[in-house]
């Protein structure tokens, strides 16, 4: 039981990493270097923690917390962070590059310090005893997998339709995109708000899974770690941040045997990763290459050219 328990718990953390990676990826996929994800993640977590422990009508006293209440928390968290993202986004998305990054770091820090100082929001201690909708990590992992699959499906749809193409056009050249009649402000705002929704929903799941919530879970470190998910996995297709989030969340856990050295190794991986694969692990070219060689394998079993999948593709 011990090992299985641990594995499911690790899987759950990896899935949360993948969701956060997707949240960071979205603004980035239209060229916006936003680091606001942990702020909205914290809003989701705090909302879930407050509602489930302070509102008895949601069923916090029941042996298993109803899943419908979790859904309700998600809706409230999405509404709160969506509205905030709408307001903040209108202001900050006029900024570019490193300026936008720093403005969003400031936003995350303001949210964190405010939560830390408001007893009603958990204060410095945090909120404990968040009720459990599942009695084992496996249940959480299954639920989160469904959420992740749903969001991945939405992202895949997005990449193929007009809005997704508009985002890619803005990333490549914002001015040219505007000249083509794309409403750049509207598209960037849409990406920012949707990113906030994904982060808030992830926060709700995390709060229940962790059983407690405090302000430190949404801080500057998280801003950069989640950004690393995307850089590491690749920022040009939605699969990149998913892979990056899964791998980089698992890494410190898998490195547990090296003990005290594990964070040093983790740091080295973040340091060396972008040098070896500047585009990230998953790029559209590599996916195409993989698809081609899979087709080749299907036509001539055993006679395909698997090396093609490893081709780094054009830089």
């Amino acid at each position: 039981m011990g090992a299985a328990f641990h594995d499911a718990s690790l899987l759950q953390q990896m899935l949360i990493g993948a969701l956060l990676g997707l949240s960071v990826y979205l603004p980035l996929s239209c060229g916006q270097l936003s680091l606001a994800t942990p702020g909205f993640y914290a809003i989701g977590g705090t909302t879930a923690a407050l509602l489930s422990t302070r509102v008895p009508a949601l069923g916090g006293g029941d042996p298993t917390y109803p899943l419908s209440s979790v859904m309700l928390e998600m809706a409230v968290a999405a509404l709160v962070s969506g509205l905030l993202a709408l307001g903040i986004g209108k202001l900050v998305l006029r900024l570019r590059g490193i300026y936008l990054a720093i403005a969003t770091i400031a936003l995350v820090e303001i949210l964190r310090v405010t939560t830390l100082n408001q007893e009603a929001l958990g204060g410095a201690v945090g909120i404990f005893g968040i009720p459990q909708p599942f009695n084992n990590p496996g249940g959480y992992a299954a639920f989160t997998l469904v959420v992740l699959a749903l969001i991945c499906w939405l992202f895949a749809r997005l990449e193929d339709n007009r809005t997704g193409r508009a985002m890619a056009a803005i990333r490549d050249d914002e001015l040219a995109a505007a000249c083509q009649g794309i409403d750049t402000a509207q598209t960037k705002l849409l990406a920012f708000v949707f990113s906030a929704l994904v982060a808030a929903i992830t926060g709700v799941i995390s709060a229940h899974f962790f059983n407690s919530w405090n302000a430190r879970l949404g801080n500057f470190d998280a801003s950069i770690t989640t950004r690393a998910f995307v850089v590491f996995g690749g920022s040009r297709t939605w699969l990149g941040p998913v892979v990056g989030g899964l791998l980089l969340t698992a890494l410190p856990e898998l490195l547990r045997p090296v003990g005290d050295l594990r964070l040093i190794v983790f740091g080295l991986v973040i340091l060396v990763g972008p040098l070896l694969a500047p585009q990230g692990l998953v790029t559209p070219e590599r996916l195409q290459g993989l698809g081609r060689s899979l087709q080749g394998l299907r036509r001539a079993p055993g006679g395909g050219e698997p090396t093609e999948a490893l081709d780094p593709g054009p830089r």
Partner: peptide
């Protein structure tokens, strides 16, 4: 990211 990695190390 790389400088952050160096900082973490």
């Amino acid at each position: 990211i790389t400088s952050l990695g160096a900082g973490v190390v």
